[in-house]
Design a protein around this nucleic acid. Structure first.
Lengths: 198, 198
DNA sequence: CGAGTGATTGACTTAGATCAATGACCGTGG
DNA sequence: CCACGGTCATTGATCTAAGTCAATCACTCG
């Protein structure tokens, strides 16, 4: 998911950082595309505005996310991008990337692999969001994120962040976990959740 | 999204169709990967089973979808795939695909573009699912799917299918649309929905 | 014609959102 | 060193929108 996974250091070192104030535009619909952006700090909101002025959010890219990857292969952007709060983005310019793809086809392949993994991961999250019950959604997450022992899930980040990823309010997540613990379905020990045999 | 968009006819003609009965396995976790599957008819359920026997669904590939694209780049599968009802799948075998990628690098590029578009499309759907209100979810869909006139959405498929795509029950969708029509927010005319100025 | 499906509306229930309050913890600045 | 502001974790009370169950009508197809 991170650029270091697929982009060689040589090409990464050619990246350009840019700082944005809250609300400032990174690019606008119709602008010529510059390359691939990665959010280093803060958030970027991608929105499309219809002619009556209503806007619809396409994506909110958080720290670590890349954005508008399809624009790499398009001459112009088809949406607007605005910083949410003070933000730093890193640009891997199109010329640099394509030169690298050409020089070393393995890089293009690695990029493709990364995209394929993202497609599958996104589909899995989507599948999870289709589950109505909070508890079942948590179960789905846990079973798909156990470690090598097949029963322990190490949580990275806060529970509030996990709640957001699951599409639940943090209260709903706390309650679901509390009930699961009460029912001896899981055991919580600061930072990890262990699935208990049923 | 469809294989014809990126795969040349020569390579497509080398595809192999396979028929599966309901419940029959297309592949199992640990099997050597064969290539890229496309669902021609029916559905395929991708599931991962933890050691206590609980299963979690990764994806349900519907007619027209491709599945497990990341497995293209992996020696073995990491999940099980079962047909849901009688199903026909089409296999683009790894050797054929990679030979084609090698012979004609533009194909690899086209494949990559398709994946990048899928990533963005999936993120947009995910963003939509994060919207709690049924009405706002419908609005989000409509504003992002207007035609060239910027206000008319042509519906392909049934409203029930749309409801599923939006992550709503069909009743909830009917009601949301009915209220929006009553409020003069949209106008429905069999097969299309027109956004009215507000 | 009858079976099957989509579209639609009504009545009722409920799970999760929302609002609110509390305690633990942590860094920081005086 | 400690008080203070901030955030996370947690639990309670309440509300409501969407899910669930159910019935009707229109339409198509064999």
């Amino acid at each position: 998911m991170v650029s270091s996974d697929w982009l060689p250091d040589t090409a990464r070192s050619a990246a350009i950082d840019r700082t944005l104030r809250g609300g400032q535009a990174l690019f606008r619909s119709g602008d010529r595309t510059a390359g691939l952006y990665e959010v280093v700090k803060g958030k970027v909101r991608l929105v499309r505005v219809d002619r009556s002025g209503h806007e619809a959010i396409l994506q909110v890219a958080m720290t670590g996310d890349t954005l508008a990857e399809a624009s790499l292969f398009s001459p112009t952007y088809h949406c607007d991008a605005f910083a949410v709060g003070d933000t730093i983005v890193r640009l891997y310019s199109k010329p640099v990337l394509f030169a690298e793809f050409k020089r070393n086809p393995a890089t293009l392949q690695a990029f493709t692999v990364m995209l394929a993994q993202q497609v599958m991961a996104l589909r899995t999250v989507l599948q999870r969001r289709a589950i109505r019950s909070a508890r079942d959604r948590v179960r789905h997450f846990l079973t798909l994120n156990v470690g090598t022992d097949g029963r322990t899930v190490r949580l990275r980040g806060t529970l509030k962040e996990l709640a957001a990823e699951l599409g639940l309010t943090h209260e709903a997540l706390y309650r679901a976990l509390a009930r699961m613990a009460a029912d001896r379905e899981v055991k919580r020990t600061g930072g990890t959740i262990r699935l208990l045999a049923v």
